[in-house]
């Protein structure tokens, strides 16, 4: 079903090989194909439109160099613009604060927050940080237990579970324990929530206010469709996001949500989740995601 952008554009420009500069008409036709390719990769429509506008401005009037076809030329412009939008690679976690530095994990149900919390803990442990994991998920069955088991696997600290304690109280206790026991980083895993759930969004905002996180990471599934813009905007407005984690990049989704969320929030994509195991966490490479979105 998905045809890579290069082959699509190859067809569009079949008759045009070897012309001088790209005319507006050539570009407009090519951009129709770019639009379809991006939408099929699940980039959100509003983001596609804005992106196409920028590509058009760059492409019209471009001299086509002899060694490439006009199709290859447009693909390159699209690819470069994608990379520019996706942002530079490897933005590290910001840990410059008085310890314990708090990292707050947020996102929709099932997006991969708990797993990613443990992955980040393991990564920081390898960097010689002392890390405490705490689950504020008092809603999903066995959620706190899940994080506790993963903390054991990562061999990092885990906040003892107190049955009946509510999220804000747990978060305060976590920071407290973090301070008293000399932890460098406290990672707060939260329950999955819908961005339109006012009560739960207020709850996570209260956790933020109580713990002053240095990083608030929005964890989102790479398979997410058009809804990515709405959820990114809402989480950013209501909780304040400092970075994005895109999970399940080990799947075969084209991952257009990465572009949507980056464009909407302006926040960097910090990590990619590339599997269920705790070492399956990768730093973000815009060229990899750009190629993936374009099916190359």
């Amino acid at each position: 079903m998905f045809e890579s952008l290069s082959s699509r554009l190859g067809k569009v420009f079949e008759k045009l090989t070897g012309r001088g500069a790209l005319s507006e008409a050539d570009v407009t036709e090519a951009l129709r194909e770019v639009r379809v390719a991006l939408l099929e990769a699940d980039v959100a429509l509003s983001v596609v439109k804005e992106f196409i506008g920028r590509v058009k401005a760059r492409a019209v009037g471009q001299e086509v160099i002899k060694s490439v076809t006009p199709g290859q030329m447009v693909v390159k412009i699209v690819h470069d613009e994608l990379i520019a939008t996706l942002g530079t690679k490897g933005t590290e976690l910001n840990l410059s604060a008085v310890p314990p530095v708090v990292i707050l994990m947020v996102g929709l149900q099932g997006s991969g927050k708990t797993t990613t919390s443990a992955k980040i803990a393991l990564k920081l442990k390898k960097e010689k940080k002392k890390v405490l994991l705490a689950s504020l998920d008092v809603y999903r069955p066995a959620a706190q237990q899940q994080l506790q088991i993963l903390a054991g696997q990562a061999e990092v600290g885990s906040l003892p579970i107190v049955m009946g304690e509510m999220p804000v109280a747990i978060s305060r206790r976590a920071v407290d324990v973090g301070r008293k026991e000399g932890y460098d980083v406290v990672i707060l895993d939260t329950a999955g929530r819908l961005h339109i759930d006012q009560e739960l969004m207020a709850e996570v905002a209260a956790v933020r206010d109580a713990t002053q996180p240095t990083e608030t990471l929005l964890v989102t599934d790479a398979m997410t469709g058009q809804d990515a813009v709405t959820l990114a905007r809402e989480f950013n407005e209501k909780v304040g996001v400092t970075g994005i984690v895109l999970t399940r990049i080990d799947g075969d989704a084209r991952g257009g949500a990465a572009l949507s969320m980056r464009a909407i929030t302006g926040r960097p994509i910090k990590f990619l989740g590339a599997g269920e195991k705790l070492d399956a966490l990768e730093v973000f490479h815009p060229d990899r995601i750009a190629g993936r979105i374009l099916g190359m």
Binding site: E40, D221, T224, L231
Partner: peptide, 28 residues
């Protein structure tokens, strides 16, 4: 999951091939 985009095509196709999916449930 209702938040899924076009990857649902691949999910149905491959799961159907491998384990003869007989029906769908859409969550969230």
């Amino acid at each position: 999951d209702a938040t899924v985009g076009q990857n649902a095509h691949s999910q149905v196709e491959i799961f159907k091939d491998m384990v003869a999916v007989s029906g769908l449930v859409l969550t969230k």
